[in-house]
Design a binder for these strands. Sequence first.
DNA 1: ATGTGC
Length: 509
Amino acid sequence: MQPKNLKRLLRALGRQGLDVTYSDRTYSVRLANSLDAPVAEVLLPEDFPVEAKALKQLANLASVRHPSGGCVCRACATPDFHPGDAGVAIGSVVETVGQVIPSAVGSDINCGMRLHVADLTIEEFLTKRDQFVERMKGDYFFGTRDVTMTAQAMRALFQYGVPGWLDAMLDRPTGSVVKSDLQQLTEESERIFLGGSMNGNWKLAPEELVSDVGLVRDGGLATIGGGNHFVEVQRVDKVENRTLAHAWGVREGQLAFMIHSGSRNVGKYIGGMWRDKAKAAWQKNLKYPDSQIFPLSTSSHPELVASYLQAEATAANYGFVNRLLLAELLRLRLREVYKDVEAPLVYDLPHNITLPQIEDVETSYTMSLQSKIQNRSTERSRSPKSKIDKWVTRKGACPAYAGQPVIIPGSMGDYSYLMVGRGNPAFCNSASHGAGRLRSRFDLNRRGASESEAELGLTGVDCITLREERRIEEAPAAYKPIQSVIDVQVAAGMVDVVARLSPVLTFKA
DNA sequence: ATGTGC
């Protein structure tokens, strides 16, 4: 099925020097009259046409070229692709050489997913559901959470992410974390992508990167955030790959907790600041690109690129700890209400982040990817000649390297999936970060209120929120059915299913 | 994405 406006769109892209062909659910974008490989591939689920605006945004992104050198070597879009409001579509992945593009990550730096399982049946859970929900509402909505910490811990959090923050906490535990098993948290950091740390060769202090937003006035730590962010209680509904599920500690019938959140105001601050800085760094005598997407060049402005990557890392580190604390609060309340229930981490991974490009994809899901990147960073700092200057930037797309766990949520009325990456380089070793929006929030707000619960897909959905409009905006009818998005990615060799999870109740801020 | 805004 092709979109109605495809011809018009192709003409518009043709005027920009781009050819688009459509075959087997994939749109291939090429430079006109060129025999080069496509600059962008877009994979779409069956029966869902591409949005012209999103395709235009991807073509723009794939064409970003810093005049001082720098290019895009590959771009693609995952099947939850939809237009973004900063000129970059959600579901875009871009591989660059000689340049990094701050707005290709955007403001929601290290937005990502986290999954825990717990040895508790749904029946046991439901017996004390109300008591549990009241405690979580306190923590997530009414500010009863206690995440106070020393200035030293806060600094370590920004600079070194989970491991550095844990060291500071082991030194002097504060707040809710006092009741946590810090040793368990340390061991679990191996199940976080990159070990929960984007530490590089720090040249700037956190104060210079996050200003007083994070260091002094931050009140966002351990909060869910708005939009599509959530914390959901689920049930492991069906295991498809017994070997991997067993290795990852996942069994049918277990209760599960899925978290979707990011770096809150810290990412917003840093993302916005660097979108502006990249624009300000554009050569004064040159016209702005029509796309308004501004890259930073590693050859002409290496110090600016380094500062940006450090700033992004600072927000990313905050995002890792934010998800950890959201989970830790849940784990604490679970122990209080249900006694001695363990809820181990399955995996935590970002879907909005810039990473050095990894050539081979033999990465297991544990620390090997982290050590590869760190080894590269060490090489880089030791020998300027072997400088890595190839980057992959994902905005609303998961890394899906071979053997690595991937978490793909559906709407609050649909299944979510624990997957394993297969490392498909044609799709930049990536996978979708969700089902993808089908109807805008505006549309849902305007018309949704007049639609029935059944029409909105809300029948049987247990959504815990203080805002009725959020329940409508995020209703299952706002999203594509997850199955089609999963199927097309399995068929394309990007991921395989490990387990299917069904929703029990969803917290939405 | 953002204690939002058509």
